[in-house]
Amino acid sequence: MKVSVGVQAVIIKNNKILTIKKKDDDGDVSYILPGGKQEFGETIEQAVCREVFEEVGITVNVDELLFLREFIGANHENAEANKNIHIVSPIFLCSIQSENDIPLTPPNPDPDQIGIEWVVVDQLEKLRFYPKQLAPQLLRIASGNKPSLCYVGDIN
């Protein structure tokens, strides 16, 4: 098995964070940050911009690295199904380039993506949001505080 790079974007506006709304095979709804896998020959910054455009339909500026996260599937819920997954995820603070509306249908959404939703940051802990351990730090970022640690470890 190989380790892959999966980039993510934190986009906060008016105390709300932009999330991708997904539905799993059991019909459960969860929320994640926009992002996806880096492609061969693409810089991490290019991957963030491409993934946000594909999933949301907006162009972003990559402002700064907030977190470096790992996901080692064998260590988390659904470990048997995810035992061959190991992803390293740089998570960047991004800003929207223009204030145009988000399109109703993004150009290339993930197959399990059912929508895009601005979520009030202090509501993240009440939702099935992943990576859930980042919810308190995202609340601090929305309040104007920088994260205390960049490397957050193997979290789900």
Rank of each mutant, 00 (worst) to 15 (best):
L139D: 09
A135R: 10
Y31V: 03
D25R: 15
E125P: 00
A135K: 09
F129P: 02
A81L: 15
D25M: 10
Q38G: 01
Y31A: 00
Q97E: 12
I102Q: 05
F92N: 03
R69Y: 06
Q46M: 08
D110F: 07
I102W: 05
I72S: 00
K83S: 05
A47I: 01
I85E: 03
P136K: 03
V56M: 04
P107E: 13
L139K: 12
L68G: 01
W118I: 03
D28N: 15
I141A: 05
V120H: 12
K83C: 03
S30Q: 07
E42L: 04
A81D: 12
A47M: 10
E55T: 09
I58C: 02
T59L: 09
V52W: 05
R128V: 00
S98V: 06
S98C: 11
I85P: 00
E70S: 12
Q133R: 14
E99W: 11
L127Y: 08
P34I: 10
E54C: 09
G73A: 09
W118Q: 05
C49D: 01
P107L: 10
D110K: 15
I44R: 09
E77F: 04
A47G: 14
V119E: 02
G36S: 12
V60Q: 01
I72L: 10
A135L: 08
I44S: 11
C49R: 13
L68Y: 14
V119P: 03
V120Q: 07
I72K: 14
H86R: 11
V60K: 07
V120Y: 13
G115H: 08
E64K: 15
P109C: 03
E39I: 02
F71T: 05
E42I: 02
K126T: 10
E99F: 11
V88K: 10
K83E: 06
P111S: 11
V62R: 03
V119W: 13
I114N: 08
A79Q: 11
N108A: 14
P103F: 02
L139T: 08
V52T: 10
P109M: 01
I85W: 04
V29Q: 11
T43K: 13
H76F: 02
V88N: 10
E51C: 04
N78A: 14
D101A: 11
